[in-house]
């Protein structure tokens, strides 16, 4: 809503930062989707039920992947991304 003209295209660095922010925002979605997969598994007692060890390995594997991704993103994300000009377009 700011009247300041927002540049339509960003320089390379800002562009990277902006996409990192997108990644950071999408990470919880990824987590929800991956951990939502067990909803599709057949439950115990039925044909082809997923064994407990497989379930444990899958769930904890996702956990490790998420932690690593969060670690990478939090390292790369600039200190004060929200102060960047042109926040209006991709800010909140």
């Amino acid at each position: 809503m700011n009247e300041k003209p927002v540049p339509l295209f960003l320089e390379r660095r800002s562009y990277r930062q902006r996409r990192l922010m997108d990644a950071a925002r999408l990470l919880p979605l990824l987590a929800a989707v991956l951990w939502g997969v067990p909803l599709l598994w057949p439950r115990g007692g039925t044909e082809g039920a997923v064994s407990m060890s497989t379930a444990i390995l899958y769930l904890f594997g996702v956990w490790v992947v998420l932690a690593v991704l969060a670690f990478l993103i939090s390292r790369k994300l600039a200190d004060d991304g929200e102060g960047a000009p042109g926040d209006g377009e991709g800010g909140q």
Partner: peptide, 25 residues
């Protein structure tokens, strides 16, 4: 109840990895 206990930890994990979206604000 088997692995259901994990849900108690999965929720906070999702919130934490989504810090940029909500917690930061």
């Amino acid at each position: 109840s088997g692995l259901e206990f994990l849900t108690i930890y999965l929720g906070p994990t999702i919130v934490m990895v989504g810090w940029w979206w909500g917690l930061r604000k």
